[in-house]
Design a protein around this nucleic acid. Structure first.
Lengths: 136, 136
DNA sequence: CGCTTCGTACGATAGTCGTCGTAGTACGGT
DNA sequence: ACCGTACTACGACGACTATCGTACGAAGCG
């Protein structure tokens, strides 16, 4: 599977919103791929994991940013961090530190810009499958 | 990643559609997952490999069944077989022996039935990305 | 029948992935 | 200053994956 070298430091240091409410504490910056850096294969791979798909679905349902600790996943903290990192590095979500918490938000605009209709189709498919399998 | 252990030989030996275009020479039968057995995560995982995505794209573009040897992939025969198997076992394609050749066809009906709009969105996204990246 | 073509099966190997535990860093409250 | 909370980093481990090479089976053609 090739590999989106995560090493490259600089770049992609822009926050979209600027968080005007308070002082915008961006002491720690996290490396995000720029929109043009997002690869379809990476997105599909990120979403091919049940845990990650679940995270994305919840994020989409809420429509807002959620902290990592908000999710009640059946894995340890380390693993959770790992999954969020995969999602961030593939360009599916964006993460910003907010004090001690880290807020995760879907990069819906970027995804829709690159692949119109894909995210909705994916989310719809996931909802359908959850309904189909969970409808016991 | 768990799930779908392919190791077990027997099992899942049902063809769903049967899709009998012609005389259907089914001397050697290949195990396909039934429509209800297809899992979104499996499909996404299958499509997250560049080689396999390319195969599916070509299959969709032609709209017909193609033999394995039709594809000119930068890997050996063994690896090609492997990729086609992953695609078949995830429910993305169906394979039928036709004399010495093996015809591969997209399971568009099943996929559309399970996840309406997903395949088209995926194909569209792949086309867009190919255009974006290959537009050098 | 022998030979070629098409594809499979069976290792083998190197790399990636998901998972964990432990230790560590950053921020905020008391 | 101290401690708790939130998340990370690193190392490890087992499982899976992509790739290969070689050997094999099945269908068709001379």
């Amino acid at each position: 599977m090739d590999g989106t070298r995560r090493g490259s430091p600089g770049e992609a240091a822009r926050r979209s919103g600027a968080t005007v409410t308070s002082a915008a504490v961006n002491s720690r910056d996290l490396p995000h791929p720029a929109r043009a850096e997002i690869r379809l294969e990476g997105v599909l791979h990120a979403l091919s994991d049940p845990l990650r798909l679940r995270i994305v679905r919840e994020l989409a349902a809420v429509g807002d940013e959620l902290s990592c600790s908000h999710f009640d996943l059946p894995v340890t903290k380390s693993t959770t961090t790992h999954h969020f990192r995969v999602l961030r590095e593939s360009g599916v979500i964006q993460q910003n530190y907010r004090g001690t918490a880290k807020l995760n938000g879907l990069r819906k605009d970027d995804l829709d810009g690159l692949f119109p209709g894909l995210l909705d189709a994916l989310l719809g498919a996931a909802a359908r499958e959850a309904d189909r399998l969970g409808g016991a």
